[in-house]
């Protein structure tokens, strides 16, 4: 049953979803492609929509993967799946601790988790660059134009602190002008 499969998958993802940000992209992508729910290109578009919407990337992608796989019911089930571990753990932690972050074991875990979260985001950038032909051996005009859009977006983010939604809208317009 596809709904159960969606719930089960996002429930597991919810338990490792530290931060709920871009670090969860590789996890969701691995699961979505293993189940044959979507292609990497479609998944990149999902991240684009998730990134231009308010709310955490992980939850937003769960909604979109769920919707594309099993409609609105799929969206609801996937969202519940990814949120449930958080609420369960929050309730447990809130009942027993007020300053969990001061425990040595918790600090040790996060000492290792933080750099791994960074690896996950770096890996996500690399794998998206590969699957969307930004990194390729057949360099063509098309690749150069994509690299230009990539570079410009990065500068707008780093130097001018543009909001992602404006960058996505601008690049969409550039895309219509260049590729249609």
């Amino acid at each position: 049953m596809i709904l159960w499969e969606l719930f089960r998958t996002f429930f597991v993802i919810g338990f490792v979803s530290f931060g709920g940000g871009y670090a969860m992209i590789p996890v969701i992508e691995a699961e979505a492609s293993q189940h044959g729910w979507m292609t990497t290109q479609q998944f990149t578009d999902v991240i684009a929509i998730a990134g231009m919407s308010p709310g955490p990337i992980a939850t937003n992608s769960a909604i979109l993967v769920g919707y594309s796989t099993a409609g609105i019911a799929g969206a609801i089930i996937s969202t519940l799946g990814v949120l449930l571990p958080s609420i369960i753990l929050v309730l447990i932690v809130a009942t027993f601790f007020t300053k969990l972050q001061n425990y040595s074991i918790v600090q040790s875990i996060f000492y290792g988790l933080r750099p791994i979260v960074a690896s996950l985001v770096i890996y996500a950038a690399l794998s998206f660059a590969l699957s969307n032909n930004l990194i390729t051996i057949n360099v063509s005009w098309h690749t150069v134009s994509l690299l230009f859009i990539f570079g410009l977006s990065l500068v707008l983010l780093l130097k001018f602190r543009w909001h992602p939604i404006y960058i996505i809208i601008l690049s969409g317009l550039v895309g219509v002008a260049l590729y249609s």
């Binding site: 578009d45 991240i47 684009a48 985001v121 770096i122 969307n132 859009i149 690049s171 895309g175 249609s180």
Partner: peptide, 17 residues
């Protein structure tokens, strides 16, 4: 539009990285 947006998404993730 999405052809170009995908390149920007890679930039968004690189920035997050």
């Amino acid at each position: 539009a999405f052809l170009a947006i995908r390149a920007s998404v890679v930039a968004l993730i690189a920035y997050a990285a």
